[in-house]
Amino acid sequence: MQIQETKPIDAPEHCPGPSSETAGSASACAGCPNQQICASAPRGEDPDLPLVTERLSKIKHKILVLSGKGGVGKSTFSSQLAWALSLEEDKQIGLMDVDICGPSIPRIMGVEKEEAHQSSEGWSPIYVCPNLAVMSIGFLLPSDDSSVIWRGPKKNGLIKQFIKDVNWENLDFLIVDTPPGTSDEHLSLVQFFKNAGIDGAIVVTTPQEVALQDVRKEIDFCRKASIPVLGIVENMSGFVCPSCRNKSNIFTINTGGGEALAKEMNVPFLGRVPLDPSIARSCDFGKSFVDECPESPASEIIIDIINRVDQNLQTKKSSSL
């Protein structure tokens, strides 16, 4: 799969693209809000792209977890997806945290006190269990309270290092946890994955319209960047009582929630993950929720979502043959 070069948001129709030699100076750039950014960016293709592509080619499946809205539980879902995939001991799973300014994956995975180490083969990811490796800027900061105040080029450089300099070995799945929105980190991922291909994106939302509105923008970004949408997950979909297991709706679903949005945008709907206090507790203590609470309705739904994603990947593979 070839991913077209992503143009700046709100770019004119004949935008030359941010990597073009005429970026920021072409006639089509006049009046574009991104003109100054493109004019000051490095020209031409990144010379490290062939090495990045070679590293990524050793990974069977590459999945982005996206959401236009913050606070919808995207990192929580990414971590539980990685945990659940690792239940198959013959599969090697990687979880890459590219939320540079808000890295929560180390704590969620229970490895916040670990430090990344370098060897002759590059950075070694942190292994949560024998077949689940994690990489995050959180392992490189002097303390948990250290802030990251970076502009786009430094974020771009670190994401590139996470791909080409981390010894991921041969992974079956690389799950990429992204920050909210459609900004520097997302454009960097499109650039680095464009030759190796992205299997697709899982888009996470909550039921209320204020979240769905931003998710529409995220799906539009995926289409402009030629990233297949594997499906929408509706997170925090009702509350499951830990005692009686009854479900109560917390958010008023005025417009049909994630399922209605999936139909509207013509993408698969993967399922509803309910609010369960045990999920928050598992994340706070760095535990696998599907291991700790296998009988929970939320665990069953997460496993069902994985099966649906696997089915979608198999369908895509068959249709490409």
Rank of each mutant, 00 (worst) to 15 (best):
M1K: 01
Q2L: 14
Q2Y: 13
I9C: 08
A11P: 04
E13M: 03
S19W: 13
A30K: 12
Q35P: 05
Q35F: 04
Q36M: 14
C38E: 11
C38Q: 12
S40I: 03
A41H: 14
R43Q: 12
E45F: 05
P47L: 10
P47T: 13
D48G: 06
P50G: 08
T53I: 11
R55D: 04
S57I: 14
K58W: 02
I63T: 02
I63C: 05
S67H: 07
G68M: 05
G71K: 07
V72F: 03
V72Y: 02
S75Q: 07
T76N: 06
F77D: 01
F77Y: 08
S78H: 03
S78A: 15
S78M: 08
L81P: 05
L81Q: 03
A82G: 14
E89W: 03
K91I: 12
Q92T: 05
I93M: 06
G94K: 01
L95D: 03
L95W: 06
L95C: 02
M96Y: 02
M96I: 06
V98N: 04
D99H: 11
I100E: 05
C101E: 13
G102Y: 01
I105G: 10
Q118F: 11
Q118W: 05
Q118M: 11
E121K: 12
S124M: 13
I126T: 10
V134Y: 07
F139Y: 14
S143D: 15
D144P: 06
K154W: 12
N156K: 10
N156E: 08
G157M: 12
I163S: 07
K164H: 06
D165H: 05
W168E: 03
N170K: 12
D172T: 09
L174V: 01
L174N: 00
I175G: 03
V176L: 12
D177N: 03
D177M: 02
P180V: 13
G181Y: 01
S188I: 13
L189D: 07
Q191D: 07
Q191M: 05
F192Q: 11
F192W: 09
F193E: 01
K194I: 12
K194E: 07
A196V: 00
A196Q: 00
A196G: 02
D199V: 13
D199P: 01
I202V: 15
V204K: 03
T205D: 00
V210P: 02
V215T: 08
E218Q: 10
I219L: 12
F221W: 08
A225F: 07
E234D: 00
R245T: 11
N246D: 04
K247W: 00
S248W: 06
S248E: 12
S248Y: 07
I250E: 09
T252E: 08
T252S: 07
G256A: 06
L261H: 06
M265H: 05
P268S: 05
F269K: 09
R272L: 14
R272M: 15
R272W: 11
D276E: 06
A280Q: 04
R281P: 01
F285H: 13
G286E: 08
S288I: 13
D291I: 15
D291L: 15
C293A: 13
P294I: 10
A298S: 14
I301T: 12
I302D: 00
I303G: 00
D304F: 01
I306L: 15
D310N: 11
N312T: 14
Q314T: 15
